[in-house]
Amino acid sequence: MIESPLTLSTLFRIGPIPITGPVVVTWGLMAALTVLGLLATRALTLSPNRYQTVLELVVGAIEDQIRATMRVEPRPYVPMVGTLFLFILFANWSSLIPGVEPPTAHIETDAALGVIVFAAIIYFGIRARGVGGYLKTFAEPSIVMIPLNLVETFTRTFSLIVRLFGNVMSGVFIIGIILTLAGLLVPIPLMALELLVGAIQAYIFTVLAMVFIGSALGERRARHEEEGRS
């Protein structure tokens, strides 16, 4: 990697739409995840084998994380949260494939994820509390806090975007520089570290998304769903 990760080059165009590298890699990830998902769930039974047990363990862990973080019944939020985690994780780890640049190393992909989380916060907040109830959350704990809450709504999403972008982009950037300066095998420890960073960043992004969505649901909603679950 010799060019800046902050720049995007158009690979081809579909009509007026320029198709860049992150989009193509994302399509590949989508195809791989879809195929893996279909293969994994094609023979689910009530008596699980070893692989099904692992899958159920993963989904169960996501559910437990949602339940612990958002304190709600996790089922409606599993597709959203689980897909964010898996996509970011596999996107971060796609840097292991030679010649593939992770989509999350580009601000557009991270911004797209941030926009989705931002929309999800509003959608789930309005669905749980209504438009009025959701807007009232900006006046909590007092009406004086409205400007700060409005700013926080955008800044926390922006911090989400920048955190993911900075960590992944910096990892890719450093590895590219070291690869340019040193030999072939020198970046391997850094790549292993990048794997860990990628997993951690996927986890952090997903947990923060859950926290933001959970805060939009409010205490009343959370308590209600907690009683309903019990």
């Binding site: 994302t26 990830l29 879809t34 769930t41 959203m80 897909t83 996509f87 557009e108 797209a112």
Partner: peptide, 24 residues
């Protein structure tokens, strides 16, 4: 690149639907 941002947004939303429908 706003086109890339829009495409990635659509891509992730589609992936959310696909994985939600066929995996989770």
């Amino acid at each position: 690149d706003w086109w890339t941002l829009a495409l990635q947004t659509v891509n992730v939303l589609i992936l959310v639907w696909i994985l939600g429908r066929f995996f989770f």
